[in-house]
Write a protein that binds this DNA or RNA. Structure first.
Length: 843
DNA sequence: AGTGTAGGTCTTGAT
DNA sequence: GACCTACACT
């Protein structure tokens, strides 16, 4: 037990958070332990409420991580638990690392003793290794990534004679992943769902996939939790052991948990009861989260000290299984839960916060928080229209240069896009400008071919049954062991029910192979035998180097004259170097399969370019938000697939984007954008209309002179700006705002929010045909539950072949092809173009 | 076995 | 328009 008799061991971390909370709080703080200094009253409550379930609703920039880490420090210093008795889970390795780091600053070395601080998967994996045999695995099982998964499924599909074209392995992988996310074993998948794949074979394929995994001594990501849940259910004694061990549970980003993670937490968070009421109460999770919750709900066990931190307004991962419901339902699941709201924002200025809050207020399914700041209003959020995406990139580039001239750091500038294909235009622009930039979240280190190859070698050494790894490298570098040979090994292996590697060992003793192939295969087998023997006596880093050299793998890239070969060799070196941190090969492989680190480490001053998703948790002084157009943001596909829920998630994404900014948030939209190669005209995002006029400034792009050079488009752009600007001053818009503020946006009589009214006021006043279509596209059968959900595809075109048409930009032309609402038109002057039908009119 | 080309796709992406 | 995959060709 660590009773902190020496307060000096826990030092408060200097924080840029301004001292808040008034005199009373400060007076109290000065009495309490040092690490509590500087916490505001809500934060302090979240830290000090140790007993019973606690939900901390932590809005953006309210000091969430600080609360979590301080809470751990508090538990330790109060002597309530030892480091090894605290279970602390995060989603990403990055978040786990951050917590370890912050804790290290507070506690010194005590962090070393926190073996249960990590991601859901790393902790699940750790537990599974202890009980591997209960899942028909060995403790050295391999963790498969998505690629391995897909290849394995492909094999199963082939074996079942299922057309891989009609029923792609990727799709099945997605289904299985979805089931696992929802905590469903093969037998529990609802029949209707299992049937959607390959005419009813989906469920059976899932079952045989699971069987194959056991044979390969492998688990996929989903299994790391699912097998935990299974073991906990089937072995109450083991569950009890963990329940007793974990005196405190802390969960980060609770709004991102999926059903499986939820079940896992529920099991672990129940007070250990010798009567074992638990397993009975926690049987079948149904397919549906709410029902699953009910199965577990309040009933028997008294939940213990679990503290979940999250923000329903930042739930942006619904598409990969996250259940916002988990957080919305918390006090139902954990009766007597204390809910603490952190609403003091220490990051952004008043205008930025107001804009973000007003936007997110349009969502209905939320717990409701109001972010406040004591900061000054600062600059208004700007909204800037551009003619096309190129001009948008140019404008942002110039703005960045201006910021730079003011002496600000590029590190404090970020561009947050909705979709990664938007990035290229910015990269192009920055290269021409010579502006240093970095892309966050590009291709992952571990996904690179050379890294996967190298790991495959190590995996085969570590686990000879790892057929997927063996198959990957058996002919890399080229050894003359092609498909035919591999197919033969497969047959052999299947017949005798042995791994491919053993099949290879047997086959080289026969004369079934041509002498050449037989020779190389024998060499491969001999090499692996040798490496495995060396493993006992050689440091794992040296072994890795030896393997890469002796296998000819390094040489393969040295001989390669392509541009990226040097980089790949560099990556391999980096891989070997990174192994040093681990005790042995097993530990390294475990880590690498769960981790996706890739930080090049270059900490130069550069602009950051990333997606909105990967920006969560980050903050910058200046944030650019380009591409706020219908179809792109909110994304048409999300709307089509998820309807209202999708729209709300997109809106949360916008909220996340704006709240990344400390001092300046700059939103952009373009009138024309290239989508899948063809230019299309777009309309401004509805989210722009949802921003509060008082905190937003409509601007012409800075450095107006730059437009001059482009020539030709000046007039129409000006029209656009006028039209757009007017949307903030029309009576319709203002009335719409008033409506929203009063009644949450849904006024009776089938009118949908303020949109239609706005559009109606809008279009007659505009002579621009684009805006005429703007209103017409926003009318009609576009509403779900009385609210607008955009729709742009699927409508049959009202045009016919050979129709004579007029387009604002391209002039007169003739329709040559019709594809839904997309027309191919041979223009008299501009040549053949594809355009959306709503942007042309009959001539 | 390795290369060339046609066809399909084209959010977001942790573990 | 670009990239990846799968098949066909040599």
């Amino acid at each position: 037990m660590i009773r902190m008799t020496e307060p000096s061991k826990i030092t408060s971390v200097p924080d840029h958070q301004p001292a808040a909370g008034g005199i009373a709080a400060r007076a109290r703080a000065s009495v309490g332990p040092k690490y509590l200094t500087g916490l505001n009253p809500e934060q302090r409550e979240a830290v000090e409420t140790l007993d019973g379930p606690v939900l901390v609703l932590a809005g953006a920039g309210t000091g969430k991580t600080r609360v979590l880490t301080t809470r751990i420090a508090h538990i330790l210093s109060q002597g309530r638990a030892r480091p090894a008795e605290i279970l602390s889970v995060t989603f990403t390795n990055k978040a786990a690392r951050e917590m370890k780091h912050r804790l290290g600053q507070m506690l010194g070395h005590a962090v070393e003793g926190m073996p249960w601080l990590g991601t859901f998967h790393s902790i699940g994996g750790r537990i599974l290794r202890f009980h591997a045999e209960l899942a028909q695995l060995k403790s050295n099982f391999t963790v498969l990534d998505v690629d391995d998964q897909v290849r394995l499924l492909k094999q199963l599909l082939q074996a079942e004679n299922i057309d891989d074209k009609r029923w792609p392995a990727r799709m099945l992988a997605g289904l299985i992943d979805g089931w696992k996310n929802r905590g469903l074993m093969p037998s529990q998948v609802p029949a209707g769902e299992a049937a959607v794949f390959a005419n009813g074979k989906g469920g059976k394929l899932y079952a045989s996939y699971q069987e194959r995994l056991k044979i390969l001594n492998a688990a996929d990501f989903g299994d790391l939790l699912l097998e935990n849940i299974r073991i906990f259910r089937e072995h109450p004694d083991i569950l009890r052991q963990y329940q007793q061990r974990f005196k405190f549970i802390l969960v980060d980003e609770y709004q991102d948990t999926n059903v499986a993670q939820y079940l896992w937490l529920r099991l672990l968070s129940q007070a250990p009861s010798p009567a074992a009421a638990a397993p009975g109460a926690i049987d079948d999770p149904s397919s549906d989260a709410a029902a699953a919750a009910q199965a577990l709900a309040p009933a028997a066990a008294r939940p213990k000290n679990i503290c979940c931190v999250g923000d329903d307004d930042q739930s942006i991962y619904g598409w990969r299984g996250a259940e916002v419901d988990n957080i919305l339902r918390f006090d139902h699941d954990f009766p007597g839960a204390k809910v603490i709201r952190l609403e003091r924002n220490y990051r952004s200025t008043g205008h930025i916060l107001a804009a973000a809050s007003h936007l997110i207020a349009h969502n209905e399914g939320r717990l409701g928080k109001t972010l406040r700041t004591e900061d000054h209003d600062g600059e208004k959020v700007t909204v800037t229209g551009s003619w096309d995406s190129e001009e948008e990139a140019r404008g942002i580039g110039e703005e960045i240069e201006q910021i730079q001239r003011k002496g600000e750091k590029l590190n404090e500038i970020a561009i947050l896009v909705r979709a990664s294909y938007q990035m290229r235009e910015f990269e192009d622009r920055f290269v021409t400008l010579g502006l240093p930039y970095r892309v966050i979240g590009g291709p992952r280190f571990y996904e690179r071919a050379e890294i996967r190859d190298a790991l495959a070698y190590l995996r085969v050494i570590n686990s000879p049954a790892d057929d997927l790894a063996f198959e990957r490298i058996v002919n890399v570098p080229k050894r003359g062991l092609g498909d035919a040979t591999v197919q033969m090994l497969h047959d052999h292996a299947r017949k005798r029910r042995i791994p491919l590697f053993e099949a290879a060992r047997a086959v080289v003793e026969t004369d079934e192979l041509k002498p050449k192939a037989r020779g190389s295969l024998r060499e491969v087998v001999a090499q692996f035998d040798r490496w495995r023997a060396q493993r006992e006596v050689t440091a794992h880093t040296d072994l890795a180097q030896i393997v890469l050299d002796e296998s000819g793998y390094t040489e393969m890239w040295q001989k390669d004259r392509s541009a990226d070969a040097a980089g790949r060799l560099e990556n391999l070196k980096e891989l070997v170097r990174s192994m040093e941190e681990f005790e042995n090969l097993q530990g390294f492989l475990e880590h690498i399969s769960l981790v996706m680190d890739r930080d090049g480490g270059a900490e130069d001053d550069a602009v950051s370019l990333m997606t909105l998703h990967s920006a969560k948790g980050l903050e910058f002084d200046n944030v650019f938000l380009p591409g706020w157009e219908e179809g792109l943001f909110p994304s048409q596909r999300t709307l089509d697939e998820q309807g209202r829920a999708g729209l709300e998630e997109e809106r949360r994404l916008g909220h996340v984007g704006i709240t990344r900014a400390r001092r300046r948030a700059m939103i952009y939209f373009a009138t024309n954008r290239r989508i899948h190669g063809t230019w299309s005209t777009t309309i401004p995002s509805r989210f722009l209309d949802e921003l509060p006029a008082a905190n937003v400034e409509i601007t012409e792009s800075k450095g107006g002179s730059a437009w001059g050079g482009t020539g030709g488009y000046g007039a129409s752009r000006f029209d656009d700006m006028e039209a757009f600007g007017s949307s903030y001053s029309t009576p319709g818009w203002q009335r719409a705002q008033a409506n929203r503020n009063r009644g949450g946006g849904r006024s009776g009589g089938g009118r949908s929010g303020g949109f239609e009214e706005e559009a109606a006021t809008f279009s007659p006043s505009s002579s621009d045909p684009d805006f005429g279509s703007f209103s017409s596209r926003r009318r009609g059968p576009l509403t779900i539950e009385g609210e607008l959900v955009a729709k742009s595809t699927g409508t049959t075109s009202e045009f016919a072949l050979d129709d004579r048409v007029f387009h604002q930009k391209f002039g007169y032309g003739r329709v040559t092809k019709i594809d839904g609402n997309k027309l191919t038109i041979a223009f008299d002057k501009a040549g053949e173009k594809k355009v959306v039908d709503s942007f042309v009119q009959r001539a």
